[in-house]
């Protein structure tokens, strides 16, 4: 029984982890990261560590998600196309022109 729960959770956490690395939308990746934290905090409960579970839930799933989301909002970067270079497209055009000149 315990094994089944653990297995399901581990699979959930690992697939959320894969999502963190390959989701196009950064906000989606942040949410996936908070799912990882939540899953890990349940695993902490299974490992008889209620204090750590509480902290991981409050910090990993709560606080750090808030910090990351606030950061994303300030960046105006809810979404980017691909991970390399293309982020340039987000620079205002007038600035880009100045750069290219």
């Amino acid at each position: 029984m315990l094994e089944t729960v653990a297995l399901i959770l581990v699979i959930l956490v690992l697939s959320a982890g894969v999502l963190v690395l390959c989701l196009q939308s950064l906000m989606g990746a942040v949410v996936a990261a908070s799912v990882v934290s939540l899953g890990v905090s349940v695993l902490f409960v299974l490992l008889r560590a209620p204090d750590v579970a509480l902290t991981e839930a409050a910090v990993g799933a709560g606080l750090s998600t808030v910090v990351l989301a606030l950061g994303l909002r300030k960046l105006g970067l809810w979404r980017i196309e691909g991970d390399r270079g293309e982020a340039h497209a987000l620079v205002p055009t007038d600035r880009r022109e100045r750069e290219d000149a």
Binding site: G17, V20, L21, L26, A29, V30, A33, V36, S37, V40, E56, G60, S64, L68, G71, L72, L75, L77, I80, D83, R84, A87
Partner: peptide, 16 residues
Amino acid sequence: TTHLFRLILALALAEA
């Protein structure tokens, strides 16, 4: 990865 924000997320994964 080379994207800074995703690196921060990857770091959180490793830490977990």
